[in-house]
C-alpha cells in the first residue's frame, strides 16, 4: 500500500514536499487557505535565485551544500530554470565590501569593466568590478509554483481549500504553514522582507545582479519582458507595509546600477515575513504525529527541494519501520 500523507500549506515548502512524496509514490492531499498560489504565501514574493555560492557570504555552510542540486531539482519538476549565473558588483566606494564577499565565497571569477559589459551590456560604465558566479541559476517563483501545482494535480495529488489544524488531522501529516505555524514552533520568528517589481523596458539584464549595499542584501532579478524584481530588506520584525526608507534604498540601488530605472514604473510592492529559526536554517522535525517542515528564511526556492526530500525521507522511513 502506498503512503498516505496530508500536507498543510501549499507555499513553496508544501509544494516541494508534495512533489518529493508523489515522486516516491505516496498518495498526497494538500490543504491551503486559498485555491491557488498567491500573496498569502511568503514564496509569492521571493526572488527565485538559485544561488548557493553567493549565499555563503552570510549563510551557514549547510545552505551551500543543501542548495547545490536545487536547479536540477526544479528542472526535473518541470520549472523553467535560467542558467545564466549571477553577477555580484559594487560601486567604487564599496570596493572593500566586494573584497569581503569574494573572501567568503567560491565558485566565481573576477570580472572587470570589460567583463561586466560583455555579460550585461546595460551595466557598461556603471560598475567596474564584480564577481561572476557562472554555475548559478534563477527561476520565476510564481510561474514555478503554478507549474508545480498543475504538475502535481496531473499526477493525482489532490488540493483542498480551507484552514485546518495539522494536529487535528488523521494519519501522516506534514505542517508546511510557514510563519502561520508560529503557534506550535516557539523559536520561529518572522524576518520582514520588502520588495518592488518594476517595469523598465529600456533596460535588459540576463541574470540576477547583486549590488553590494551597506544595509541590505540588494539584488535585481530580471523576469523578462522588461519586468524586474528588486529585493530585499531583512528586518527583524513582522509587518505588511514597506517603509519609505526601504523603498528609497531599493530604488536608489537600482538607479545606481542604471539611471534608466529612474523612469521605470512601479508595478508592485511586496512585503511579507519570512519564517526563520535562530540559525536561519530550515528544519524538518517530528512533533508527535506531525512532521513540521519550516524555517526556509530567504531560501525558499534554493532549499525548498532539500526540505521536500527530507520530508519524504522521514515519511518513508516511518512507513518502512511500521512494515518491519
Amino acid at each position: 500500500m502506498s503512503a498516505q500523507v496530508t500536507i498543510v500549506g501549499a507555499g513553496v515548502a508544501g509544494l516541494c514536499a508534495a512533489r518529493a512524496l508523489a515522486w516516491r509514490g505516496a498518495e498526497v492531499v494538500v490543504w491551503d487557505r486559498e485555491a491557488a498560489p498567491g500573496p498569502h504565501h511568503c514564496s509569492w514574493w521571493a526572488g527565485g535565485m538559485l544561488a548557493p555560492y553567493c549565499e555563503a557570504e552570510s549563510a551557514e555552510p549547510e545552505v551551500v551544500a543543501w542548495g547545490q542540486s536545487a536547479a536540477d531539482w526544479w528542472e526535473r519538476a518541470g520549472a523553467e530554470v535560467t542558467r545564466n549565473g549571477s553577477l555580484v558588483v559594487s560601486l567604487t566606494r564599496d570596493r572593500a565590501d566586494l573584497a569581503r564577499f569574494a573572501k567568503r565565497t567560491e565558485g566565481y571569477r573576477t570580472v572587470g569593466a570589460a567583463g561586466i559589459a560583455e555579460l550585461e551590456p546595460d551595466l557598461e560604465g556603471r560598475v567596474s568590478q564584480g564577481l561572476f558566479f557562472e554555475a548559478e541559476a534563477h527561476l520565476t517563483p510564481r510561474a514555478a509554483m503554478a507549474g508545480l501545482r498543475a504538475a502535481l494535480q496531473a499526477d493525482g495529488v489532490r488540493f483542498r481549500v480551507g484552514e485546518v489544524e495539522p494536529a487535528s488531522l488523521p494519519g501522516t501529516v506534514v505542517d508546511t504553514r510557514g510563519f502561520s505555524a508560529r503557534d506550535v514552533l516557539d523559536d520561529l520568528r518572522g524576518v520582514k522582507g520588502e520588495m518592488l517589481v518594476l517595469s523598465c523596458p529600456e533596460v535588459s539584464l540576463s541574470r540576477p545582479v547583486r549590488l553590494l549595499h551597506p544595509r541590505m542584501p540588494f539584488y535585481i532579478v530580471p523576469r523578462g519582458g522588461g519586468i524586474f524584481m528588486l529585493g530585499a530588506t531583512q528586518i527583524e520584525a513582522v509587518g505588511d507595509r514597506i517603509t519609505a526608507r526601504s523603498m528609497m534604498e531599493l530604488l536608489n540601488a537600482a538607479y545606481a546600477l542604471n539611471p534608466a530605472f529612474g523612469e521605470a514604473e512601479v508595478v508592485e510592492i511586496g512585503v511579507d515575513s519570512r519564517p526563520a529559526f535562530p540559525d536561519n536554517l530550515p528544519r524538518v522535525v517530528r512533533d508527535g504525529a506531525v512532521i513540521r517542515a519550516n524555517g526556509l528564511f530567504r531560501h525558499g526556492f534554493l532549499l525548498g527541494p532539500w526540505l521536500g526530500e527530507r520530508v519524504a525521507d522521514m515519511v518513508m522511513e516511518a512507513r518502512d519501520a511500521r512494515r518491519a
Binding site: R189, G190, Q234, E236, A237, R245
Partner: peptide, 10 residues
C-alpha cells in the same frame, strides 16, 4: 530603526 524594526521576537 532600520534592520531591527521592532520585532518582539528579536
Amino acid at each position: 530603526r532600520r534592520e531591527q524594526g521592532g520585532g518582539q521576537d528579536f
